[in-house]
Design a protein around this nucleic acid. Sequence first.
DNA 1: GACAAAGTGAACCGATCTGTACATTTATAG
DNA 2: CTATAAATGTACAGATCGGTTCACTTTGTC
Lengths: 187, 187
Amino acid sequence: MRPTKRDELVQKALQVFYQNGFHATGMDMLVKETGISKTSMYKHFRTKDDLILAVLRLRDEYFRNWLYRRIEELADIPIEQLIAMFDALEEWFDEPGYKGCMFIKASSEYQDSSHPIHNQAADHKRMLEIHFTAIAMKAGLPNPKLLTRQLLLLKEGAIVTAHLGHTENPAQDAKKAAIALIEASSP
Amino acid sequence: MRPTKRDELVQKALQVFYQNGFHATGMDMLVKETGISKTSMYKHFRTKDDLILAVLRLRDEYFRNWLYRRIEELADIPIEQLIAMFDALEEWFDEPGYKGCMFIKASSEYQDSSHPIHNQAADHKRMLEIHFTAIAMKAGLPNPKLLTRQLLLLKEGAIVTAHLGHTENPAQDAKKAAIALIEASSP
DNA sequence: GACAAAGTGAACCGATCTGTACATTTATAG
DNA sequence: CTATAAATGTACAGATCGGTTCACTTTGTC
């Protein structure tokens, strides 16, 4: 029980960090954008980094839930769900405020691999890998682990390429590559 | 003529920005790390952003020269050069101070696509695409443009995955995928 | 050796940074 | 109504931010 303020803060801070970056967003800007007092913020989170970690947890929950559900909506059988991932990604890229992957950005701004924020970003990627490996195994594909890692390489590549904006439709390029990889790996 | 100080500044600033990030690196830190006075810096560059742009220009020159040369050393025929790109990447990932791609990080910290720094990062990726498309055409592969974009998606994916560090050997995963893609696209 | 260009160091500007202190107001209970 | 908890606004601390000023020293050239 007692949701509200704290959750509201994390939710709004997520938007601001995503659109603005982490270092570029100061606590005073968060006060302005979220309408929540600084005193309140520091009652819920001891440091800015703690707030960022909470934001990343929420982002992980939002994003994975959305992606997993969307893929299930788009396709029924496992092998087609793997491919549908890239259609889901295209929808994401086409959203107005698209600014790349929050976890890639977090690991770019907190580069040291010992930093908690960097680590949490890596955790997000690990969980994606586990989920999609399970789907690849259900699909009965040979070497599902390798194939999943390769599909996820295409995913990460499409994400940063869509943000850089120098290419027409990276999601569909990746989708075609994914199909070719899956066909090549099938008997 | 007259190289030295300015070039020395850009060269040393490149290291600091790469290891530390852009927003996280202040001008006073640059003074400390490069040993060049702030007065001198601001005589050569009007703003920090101007310095960053110069740093990215140098990085682009360094990186592309290295990658193009290394690939030619590793393979003779075009089709094998495309594949050798991923062996070159692996060498890069294994370097001690590896911290991902400077241009991806730049576009993460300067997200607005109208920002000169973001744009210059996109230019770097464009030039890579042109170069590798030419190689793919020399290789006589069908649809060389699409194939190149796909190989570059694998490359970007491997770069960020190697930095996140949650996967064993993304370069070799990408290499195997590249081989499969090329074989699938060959007659 | 003289002169100009290039570089230096340190102080300084106003703004902003993360984080704290404190007195006050607003909700939520019993 | 009253006691308690939660949230607020503001002012502030100390450090750092990007950038400027200025008097001085080094460097290269004729």
